[in-house]
Design a protein around this nucleic acid. Structure first.
Lengths: 218, 218
DNA sequence: GCCACAACATACCAAATAGTATGCTTTCGG
DNA sequence: CCGAAAGCATACTATTTGGTATGTTGTGGC
């Protein structure tokens, strides 16, 4: 009994309804933040009222958690297959970074909320410290970072990457890419070409940051 | 008549009082966000009540703006002298980055609020779109970024940096450094050694991202 | 054709909170 | 030594908002 509608005769319809709520909420959270966005505002953006939202979610926080889950799920779907391939770590990592950043730009609201929103204003203040859901989200983020750390480690062992701790290197690596959520303003109509040029510049920057200037290949 | 206390006989005392408010507010904004932090909570953290705060600030938003101003002022004080020196752009930039990041880590609350907090939840919702203060803050941020862009441009002309647009290169450059405000959790007792090792790793990463792998030093 | 339940909308409530109005005490210039 | 303003605290208000309780309408199964 996770909520009122998930275990019904038409679970796919419920999924769609929840997805629409998640999208609307993410749009507003991105612009105004979590606490400054009212449930009524989310409903109004959907052309509905609170009743619709509370029929699918029992609280505002659950919507927030669902945004996180959606964001992480989408990231895994795009990046994990690449990580599992064989081949030179440098190539894999570059394509992983491209997939990550591309998704970041294409579903900015969800990803921005997910990446900047994991703050304490929910957990410290409310009773979410021991939440099962919270632990799940944190585990997802850790696993995701670990996926990159392993490829970086593999590259370091072959000598193409610098020899700092992989865990420490992932920080600026993600910083280079995730910082788009701070400075990039999605245009009305964002051309693929626009996105691709940003991806290219940032991914190459991130890769140069890892590479060892002295270490030749092999 | 900026506020009630600035043009009095003891402006320095008022400055101290305001600085204490700014610090307390930044601490709470960092953890809970702007809207989720009540004026009463800020007052309580100072061992006082609202009266004390509203004696120096006429609104919550003014406190927020003062945090931004303080953060930018401190950054300029630390970085601008280095930018004005002569010498190889690469050396100057590295030391500018170090100063920037060092300050970032040492006054995390103020800097984190300043760097991540310039959101719309104030301006779109309220009547702050045409605020004089807001324009001033934005100008400061632009000038600050421009300072780095110029040094990067100088380095690109000597051939040590890659040839992308300086404006585009500053994004991942700041991303590498400012992302600490997302992942770094200030320890109870943060040793200088701790901070220095982080500075070193991130600054070197940021510099490698700029450097042209093919371009030897002029 | 009826019934149970999904899928909402509407009305309502209690708590939180930005801001104000006012009162009290200390300090200081003349 | 006194008036006036600084430097607060206290009491109060109007509004916003998360959440609930209670409708109302459509719809699929039998």
């Amino acid at each position: 009994m996770d909520n009122a509608a998930t275990d019904q005769a038409h679970p796919d319809a419920a999924k769609d309804a929840k997805a629409e709520i998640v999208r609307a909420a993410a749009d507003l959270f991105m612009d105004y933040g979590y606490t400054a966005t009212s449930i009524d505002a989310i409903a109004e953006k959907m052309g509905a009222t609170k009743g619709r939202i509370y029929h699918y979610y029992r609280s505002k926080a659950q919507i927030f958690f669902d945004i996180q889950r959606t964001a992480m799920t989408n990231l895994f779907r795009a990046v994990e297959p690449i990580a599992r391939e064989s081949g030179p770590p440098e190539d894999r990592l570059r394509r992983m970074a491209w997939a990550h950043l591309s998704l970041m730009l294409r579903e900015m609201p969800i990803q921005k909320v997910a990446v900047q929103g994991l703050e304490k204003y929910l957990f410290e203040a409310e009773g979410f410290r021991h939440s099962k859901t919270l632990a799940e989200i944190n585990a997802l983020r850790d696993d995701y970072e670990q996926m990159f750390a392993e490829v970086i480690d593999a590259g370091a062992r072959t000598g193409v990457f610098v020899n700092d701790s992989p865990r420490l290197l992932t920080k600026p690596f993600f910083g280079t890419m995730n910082w788009v959520t701070v400075w990039y303003r999605p245009r009305r109509i964002q051309s693929d070409e626009d996105i691709n040029s940003i991806c290219s510049a940032l991914v190459e920057y991130a890769m140069r940051g890892l590479r060892d200037p002295n270490g030749g290949a092999s």
